[in-house]
């Protein structure tokens, strides 16, 4: 049972130079008692090997649902992918039979979750859980799996791995548990790693350790990293490119330096402006007014219009497409030129 690649998805670069992973016009709906919620509404992004793409958004923006759709771990029902493609090395994952998909999940596309304590099973030792990856996917023996688990715990720098391999999750601190999660996710050398708020539950000094570890692992293996977060600081530290999500759509896509210098969407600009800066001490912070939209009752036109300082009449009626505003940038705002100008001034 030693299979290293799935026959249906070729290894190596896809024909035609397509990126490693492409999310193309993805729509995800949830059927609830109050009605149909369009959690993801036409999201497209791509990821290249060795690249870090940050997906930035608040709760309800659809950033985690998109990730779950890529992993194929959406609860169906109530969730349903109603349209779109997720191409991994050129093959649409959504069209693969479940069996083929499960050979990719965890092996070639892996994920780290926010809350390591609830993602780990409390009644098994961490060594057993890390080793499970090798037993299930590679048919390794118990003994070999444990040896691999110790190696991995060393690799994610858990001190005293040999002694701690028989400990249970509750015996580890939050930072160490997140390392265990990372060890499990990189066990099979995935080509894509999705990290969903990997450091949100952690203290800053531990966060710095974990982000450093992820960056190192990515450098070593040319793995593509999708980092889902709401933290503008973390994004600025590690991302190559950013996709900003709001109300189930991507509102801005840009290389990291461009968006911090000159955001082109009012929401992205508002978020950046509301970060407290040293020279604003004692002054009122810029605050985006209003609150995030209710997914059951989305505003007409552009879903940001009730909160937007650039709003014009057509924003209420026409939803802006994601305008290409440069070779590597896009903004879903009718008035992106004005926003860009405002960013310069």
């Amino acid at each position: 049972m030693k299979k290293t690649s799935t026959p249906m998805v070729p290894a190596g670069r896809a024909p035609g130079g397509e990126p490693l992973l492409v999310v193309d016009d993805l729509h995800v709906e949830f059927t609830t008692r109050q009605g149909v919620v369009r959690a993801v509404n036409g999201v497209s992004y791509s990821l290249n090997p060795g690249e870090t793409l940050a997906v930035l958004g608040e709760s309800g923006s659809g950033k985690s649902v998109t990730a779950q759709a890529i992993m194929g771990i959406l609860d169906t029902p109530p969730a349903r992918v109603s349209r779109g493609e997720i191409r991994f090395r050129g093959t649409d994952l959504l069209r693969l039979p479940e069996e083929a998909r499960s050979r990719i999940r965890g092996r070639r596309i892996a994920m780290i979750f926010q809350d390591a304590l609830s993602a780990l099973n409390p009644v098994f030792t961490v060594g057993f859980q890390i080793g499970e990856m090798f037993r299930v996917h590679r048919g390794a023996s118990r003994r070999d799996a444990e040896k691999k688990a110790i190696e991995l715990m060393d690799r994610v720098r858990i001190p005293g791995a040999r002694q701690r391999v028989h400990d249970y999750p509750h015996q580890f601190s939050g930072g160490m548990r997140q390392r265990i999660m990372i060890a499990m996710s990189i066990a099979l050398d995935p080509e894509v790693l999705i990290a969903d708020e990997p450091t949100t539950a952690l203290d800053v000094t531990v966060q710095a350790q974990i982000m450093e570890l992820l960056a190192e692992l990515r450098r070593e293996s040319d793995m593509g990293l999708i980092l889902i977060t709401h933290d503008l600081g973390v994004v600025a530290d590690v991302a190559d490119r950013i996709a900003v999500m709001y109300g189930g759509r991507i509102v801005e896509k840009a290389p990291v330096h461009d968006i911090y210098r000159t955001p082109a969407h009012p929401y992205a600009k508002g978020l950046l402006d509301s970060v407290p800066r040293v020279d604003q001490k004692g002054q009122e912070l810029f605050a985006i007014k209003g609150m995030p939209p209710n997914l059951l009752d989305m505003p007409s036109g552009c879903s940001f219009h009730p909160r937007c300082p650039y709003r014009q009449d057509d924003c209420v009626t026409d939803a802006p497409p994601l305008y290409e505003i440069g070779p590597t940038r896009a903004s879903a705002c009718h008035y992106w030129r004005e926003v860009l100008d405002g960013s310069h001034g």
Partner: peptide, 15 residues
């Protein structure tokens, strides 16, 4: 010093 230096700064310039 360690705490302050660990805080991610929301500005990618010079990272």
């Amino acid at each position: 010093q360690a705490l302050l230096s660990a805080v991610p700064v929301p500005n990618p310039e010079g990272r």
